[in-house]
Design a protein around this nucleic acid. Structure first.
Lengths: 225, 225
DNA sequence: ATCCCTTTGTGAACCGACGCACAAAGTCAG
DNA sequence: CTGACTTTGTGCGTCGGTTCACAAAGGGAT
């Protein structure tokens, strides 16, 4: 079709990586609506970013656009998916099957993106053995065995804060290097292990800050005493 | 107690605001363990950040430390809480009571930080009327009425993607200016409305990217870092 | 084949955030 | 009261990311 764009510079900026899933989502929507080609302007609009930023982001992957035309939707979906590693199947284990763990287990957004919930683990004898989202909840004592047996490479921590570090240490010890942490604690991990954290309460606090400023901003100097 | 702390600069960097909840959490832990005073070094350690960054962050709020000693834990908790607006009570409505909405409704981390789940709303007649976390689920037709009646100022969207924009428009129309969006869509809102988004699938995709790179590392020329 | 129009890919200026390193400020012992 | 020691608050160099603006590249019409 065109000159073989090489596998590209492996040094993709973090900020770009964080946006690729956004573009991918927008592109999936377009593919569903049978849109064959899209301009950086339109795609940027759909993803809620600046078009120059989008073009620069995509340029990190290679030269996949056609000047005067835009980007081929299908082709771009494939390239981004490959770059993100979504063309392979990732086995995910969820540790902690409380309210949140349960919700995550049932969340459809994972499966549709190449992620497969391969195991549920909990410490509470009350839930161990239960069937959730078609999976049997296994005991925390089996943690290491389950991870190895199922080929789990990404662990989602949905445990209480107090248990998170210990579970983290154990999964790292058996070779897991990617962790998504929902527990409200700062995990300490060795170099080479990636931890991403999602803290619902923090998001609300940030909103509250801005809300407060909006409410008090116009007139009040906000009672500093 | 000490020199009058001036009304701090109203222009606190976003990056700083995003970290304040982190410091606050660490400080709460210390207060529980009856630690009266903490140095920037120790607090930074507990929060997982650089100590110079922490000092600079805190300096945006005012001069609340004592040279040679550190920061008074209680005092700092109060100052950060006030800055974030956590000294007041925020009424939160959760729209969409599926797996995720339910988990959020039961999540304890909200209440403990000055947030109060004041309403649950859903469109499914099957769940409307149910009692969840001590709250009655109300019908989406009542959305505007409920928001006004309960004084809701922050809305959490846990609806399916397809419904999110419409709900968003409606809550914005009745004056809500702070939204926490869990639906995998880019919301468009007028100026002055803050939207923060949490997308679980995006976090996993970012992890997958790094994991893939690590996996390919030993053989491929990846450790260019 | 040539010209015009569209859109990409990127050079370069700008902006904010990070972290080092240090002077200023305060404590505490004697 | 003085001097040694600790820790804050910040000036400044650096770096990564964002945005503008435009030359280069390709398509399509005539």
């Amino acid at each position: 079709m065109k000159s073989p764009s090489q596998p590209r510079d492996r040094g993709i900026p973090d900020a770009t990586v964080a946006r690729l899933p956004l573009y991918l989502r927008a592109l999936h929507g377009m593919a569903e609506r049978a849109i064959a080609t899209v301009s950086s302007e339109d795609l940027a609009m759909a993803a809620g970013v600046n078009s120059a930023k989008l073009r620069k982001d995509l340029s990190h992957l290679g030269s996949y656009g056609t000047r005067g035309v835009g980007y081929d939707v299908e082709y771009l979906v494939y390239q981004i998916s490959r770059e993100l590693g979504l063309t392979q199947d990732w086995a995910v284990a969820i540790v902690g099957v409380g309210n949140l763990g349960r919700a995550l287990a049932n969340y459809g957004g994972f499966v549709s993106r190449g992620f497969r919930v391969a195991a549920l683990v909990d410490a509470d004898p009350e839930v161990v053995g239960d069937d959730i989202a078609g999976l049997n909840v296994e005991h925390i004592d089996e943690l290491e065995a389950v991870i190895k047996r199922r080929g789990v490479s990404i662990v989602v921590l949905a445990t209480p804060a107090a248990a998170a570090q210990e579970v983290c240490d154990r999964v790292v010890a058996v070779g897991v290097t990617s962790i998504l942490n929902f527990a409200p604690v700062v995990l300490s991990v060795p170099d080479g292990v990636d931890v991403r954290k999602v803290d619902l309460s923090i998001e609300l606090q940030i909103l509250a800050f801005h809300e407060q400023r909006k409410a008090g901003g116009p007139l009040m100097a906000v009672d500093s005493q």
